[in-house]
Simulated assay, not measured.
Amino acid sequence: MTPEELEAARDRTVPDVIADGLRVLFCGINPGLLSAATGHHFARPGNRFWPALHLSGFTPRRLAPAEQHLLLEHGLGITNVAARATARADELTVEELRTGGEILVRTVLRHRPRWLAVAGITAYRTAFGEPGARIGPQERTIGATRIWALPNPSGLNALWTTPKLTDAFRAFRLVTGLPDASCASGPGD
Rank of each mutant, 00 (worst) to 15 (best):
E139H: 08
S56E: 02
P45A: 12
F172H: 07
L92Q: 09
G129R: 07
T141N: 05
E130F: 01
A43Q: 11
I103A: 13
G21T: 09
R134N: 09
I135M: 01
D11L: 13
A82Y: 03
T162S: 13
T86S: 03
N80C: 07
G129V: 02
R173A: 09
G21A: 08
E130D: 14
W148F: 15
A83R: 15
E130V: 06
T59V: 10
V175C: 13
F42W: 14
A123M: 02
P137F: 09
G143M: 14
T166V: 13
R10D: 03
W148Q: 10
R112H: 14
A133M: 05
V118T: 09
N80W: 06
V14K: 00
F58D: 02
W115F: 10
R106H: 12
N152D: 15
G100E: 02
S35H: 10
A158L: 14
Q68L: 01
A52G: 04
L165N: 05
G77Y: 01
D16R: 12
V17I: 15
R48Y: 07
I121H: 08
T122E: 14
A9K: 04
G28A: 13
S35T: 12
T38P: 01
L178P: 06
K164W: 11
G39Y: 01
F42T: 06
F128N: 00
A149W: 00
V24T: 14
R88T: 06
P113A: 02
L33Y: 04
H111S: 08
A133C: 01
V81L: 07
G143Q: 15
L150D: 02
A66M: 06
D11Y: 11
P3Y: 00
T79D: 05
A89G: 11
E95K: 12
A149H: 01
L97S: 00
E91R: 07
C183R: 15
F128S: 02
A149D: 06
A119M: 11
D167F: 10
R140P: 00
G28H: 05
E67T: 04
A181T: 11
E91K: 04
L33N: 00
H69D: 14
F58E: 01
L156C: 04
A158E: 14
N152Y: 15
E5P: 00
